[in-house]
Design a protein around this nucleic acid. Structure first.
Lengths: 188, 188
DNA sequence: TCATATCCGTACTCTTCAGTACGTTTACTC
DNA sequence: GAGTAAACGTACTGAAGAGTACGGATATGA
């Protein structure tokens, strides 16, 4: 599949090293086919962003789906979010979008602005049921995000090694504990 | 000055739109002069990164310098950090470095890894004097960073409008309050 | 078997830009 | 004002890649 080949090229060569010819060769397709399917280079990148975003939104929604203890749900979700944002594909797409305003807007729309509301409605519902007290779901999610992600994403975007799975889990749990502590004091 | 001209080009054209010729013209210099001063394109970008980092480190150190109430010091510092990370020059440099591993490493070294220790030693000293209780200065700084910056930097990197100065200040204060609350409970 | 649509491979155009070469000009020093 | 070094401007080379053109292959279905 072409999108798969494009991701492989992207991971190996970086955003600047990706060429339509290399992708075509790896996919066993011709350049002309790529152009007829995706229009141009940006179109192909758009398709990659959408493909990644679809997989993401689905996972986020299902992580917040059960009715376990909010601490467990949030902590699992936190770990998943960290894993997602330090995943090589996401990183490469973020790097590529960073220097292209159209792609950047698409990435924001299909990523942050699609995931945000899902989490916010979870926080609102949980808060309404009295288990958890958040002042405002939107700012609460930002606080949660900050406590979990910290400077991790920007550092790996700039080339640092991503934290180990174990470290990710620890971070997810600590961040969740900190978030719940702030909730208890009415500071989230 | 050449570096100034380069920054202007970078802000107007974006990282990909910057060419040595345009910079030379804007600076009233010749391409050959640029090459003799900076070696090559990356050398010029390195110089820009260093120039920006020097200004930054100085401001950070002086913000943490006085012996005011830690809440005031931290809150002022927080606002400054937010302003710094959403500043157009920093953003443009981050975007440019994101697709160039050498520049990325330089940006990390002269930015995050230079500012971090300064803040950590402030936290350690303040903690030692009993005014504030942090478990570990390094993770405490990460927590503080997360509470202040949240997803602001990545969003503006992807093209969103930076928050207003007023919003930045509010964020700096709220983030500081949250951080101090976590300190009190031994969670930072 | 024929018709049609899709796709492959190759080759071509066009543009852009990094980096270099070089002759001329400015400016400073003695 | 002669000598020297730095810097200007213009022109050139070379490489790379986006996008296009087209003839030939392959498949599908009537």
């Amino acid at each position: 599949m072409v999108i798969e080949a494009a991701f492989e090229e992207l991971l190996e060569q970086g955003a600047d090293g990706v060429t339509m010819l290399k992708i075509a060769r790896r996919a066993g397709a011709s350049k002309e086919t790529l152009y007829s399917w995706f229009g141009n280079r940006d179109g192909l990148f758009s398709a990659m962003i959408r493909s990644n975003a679809d997989a993401t939104a689905e996972r986020v929604a299902s992580a917040l789906d059960g009715d376990d203890d909010p601490r467990d749900t949030l902590s699992t979700f936190a770990t998943g979010l960290l894993r997602l944002l330090t995943d090589q594909r996401s990183l490469a797409l973020n790097r590529a979008a960073m220097t292209n305003s159209v792609l950047a807007a698409e990435l924001l729309a299909s990523g942050r602005h699609r995931v945000g509301p899902i989490v916010e409605s979870y926080l609102a519902a949980t808060s309404a049921s009295g288990v958890l007290a958040v002042v405002d779901p939107a700012t609460a999610f930002e606080t949660f995000y900050g406590l979990v992600i910290r400077d991790t994403q920007i550092r790996v975007l700039l080339g640092e090694q991503p934290p180990s799975p174990k470290a990710l889990r620890a971070r997810g749990e600590t961040g969740t504990d900190q978030f719940l502590a702030l909730c208890e004091r009415g500071l989230a």
